[in-house]
Design a protein around this nucleic acid. Structure first.
Lengths: 230, 230
DNA sequence: TCACTAACGAACACTTTGTTCATCAAAACA
DNA sequence: TGTTTTGATGAACAAAGTGTTCGTTAGTGA
């Protein structure tokens, strides 16, 4: 499983620097941090830092990539565990909120108010790329949606990030499930409107049978929702 | 009207520095700009810069304040010009998009992808404060909204800013009116959902008679909309 | 045990910041 | 118009940060 015949010192040093950066971000905000701060906090030599990373940004990106792969692995695990049943759908948004809850410290550094512009853009782009292919696919059946899909997708990502940020910056007063519910309440009708009023059940079935695997999975909560009854 | 017995040199120097900063932001992004860059572009002395502003951020903030007061003045003018008629309502969002169209260069520097984190946060807060009092007022009549107003407001501001940013970064392919329409399509149903399904006409009338002046004006397009018929 | 190599830290040149001050030139004022 | 006030100038400065180099030290893996 592991292909890591790596010097222990490397891992240890990197961990020290990552932890130092994370804690510093929460304390004083990413932009205000100097390499010297990281060196002091991690108690690591100057040349050591530059032996591993080109600059502050690369260190941060590296942390982000780590978190991302953790999330993706967890997603895969969940999907795999449900493959046996006949309902392999997962609620992507909910899982993201859950993962955020499980790794508050890291997410605070990346998506909290102290986070740097760079990661936020990176995160935005990451989520945008994840969604755009699915929205595009979802739109195949429709002629011209009232709102261009790029805008809708951009909008959706911003909405999601704004909820995440709010959640993190306000000590997470609600559960991940509640946040997911809020996201659904706010965006489900918007998606319907943007996609041209009412996503029909027939569309839903069509999509479900279309290639692309998890389209149905991801959009399931947008379409077969029950948030609008009651 | 004007109370400005000010040395002409001051205004000239400041204008040079502001223009330099604006153009530099669009070119290389705010974070990457050094004071030296501004000095070179504006062709002013180093000591001159620091005689006017503490640092880069203060110069930017000052530019922002200028734009803000321009916008607010224009708003006042529009309201005043309609006071004679019996329909003094204005569509705040639409006016903001129009103002953006009229001052593309400035808005690109503030809300475009090259903009700095600082102004964006400032802008976010500015819009948030504008909205929160109105949403709070709007909610007075309801017991407990399904979604807390702070979240809804935070969400609305993020949505608006994300549309503005998208618009600016994609060479503004649509008219301000179209952007306003898109914003309405995406958020009107969300607001209704967040405020507890269907804002009744009775609520609307109540709000219209309530203190707070422009509440009705601002929310007019959310409530007496026609985007959901057809 | 021993060869390897990561970590160290001092020293380096370089960039950027923010301040000071004597000097110059352009407004403002009468 | 001439005089005074005041902003702009640029050189010089200390301070802080960046990113690199290299000989030395010490932990690691075999």
């Amino acid at each position: 499983m592991k292909k890591k015949p790596e010097d222990r010192r490397i891992g240890r040093t990197r961990k020290l620097m990552h932890e130092a950066l994370m804690s510093l971000i929460v304390e004083k905000g990413y932009e205000a941090i100097t390499v010297q701060d990281i060196l002091d906090r991690a108690d690591v030599g100057r040349s050591t830092f530059y032996a591993h990373y080109r600059d502050k940004d690369e260190l941060l990106l590296s942390s982000f990539e780590h978190l991302r792969s953790m999330f993706e692995q967890q997603q895969q695990a969940i999907i795999a565990s449900r493959r046996t049943g006949n309902d392999p759908e997962i609620n992507f948004i909910l899982e993201l909120f859950r993962h955020t809850g499980q790794h508050q410290k890291l997410y605070k550094a990346f998506a909290g108010k102290q986070s740097g512009e760079m990661v936020l853009k990176y995160l935005h782009r990451y989520l945008y790329d994840l969604l755009i292919e699915r929205t595009t696919l979802l739109m195949k059946s429709r002629k011209t949606p009232p709102v261009p899909i790029e805008i809708t997708t951009h909008y959706l990502v911003s909405s999601l990030l704004s909820l995440m940020t709010w959640w993190l910056d306000n000590n997470m007063p609600y559960s991940a499930e509640k946040m997911d519910e809020i996201f659904r309440m706010l965006t489900t009708p918007a998606i319907e409107a943007a996609f041209g009023r009412k996503v029909e059940i027939s569309d839903y079935d069509k999509i479900a049978g279309a290639p692309g695997g998890s389209v149905k999975a991801f959009y399931s909560h947008f379409i077969d929702n029950d948030c609008c009854s009651s």
